[in-house]
Design a binder for these strands. Structure first.
Length: 111
DNA sequence: GGTGTGACCAGCT
DNA sequence: AAGCTGGCCACAC
């Protein structure tokens, strides 16, 4: 059988993100072995919105903890609402204490 | 089948 | 110091 593509791996990682945690595109890309493919991760999220699967794309933000992808959630602050619903604080489209909520797969999955 | 794009990141000018 | 380009891989037209 075929191995999961970079694209598929991204979904696996995102779905593994625990509630109340967030991660960045570059981190996922780096974890997959392609640090420079950070763009692919975000782009994969865009497609995930069209997929019937439950991809918590709102838990994935950029390196600065900025909700760069909220625009694709409909242009509204839907992404912000989801994150706040999980117990985090968002201000000016930016996650407060981003480092504290940061979820690193390389550390969490690697035990 | 080639070109362009894409929710990024980091380095160079 | 800040702005911009390059790079990565996969999909859409």
């Amino acid at each position: 059988m075929k191995e999961p593509s970079f694209f598929e791996k991204v979904y696996q990682i995102v779905k593994l993100i625990p509630k109340g945690r967030v991660t960045s595109y570059g981190t996922i890309a780096e974890y997959l072995g392609s640090k420079g493919s950070a763009r692919m991760v975000g782009w994969a999220m865009n497609k995930s919105l069209s997929f019937p699967e439950d991809i918590p794309a709102h838990r994935v933000v950029n390196r600065k903890g900025l909700l760069t992808g909220k625009i694709h959630f409909g242009g509204s602050n839907t992404m912000k609402q989801l994150l706040e619903n999980e117990g985090m604080i968002i201000e000016n489209d930016q996650i407060i204490d981003f480092e504290k909520f940061f979820w690193d797969p390389a550390k969490e999955l690697m035990v």
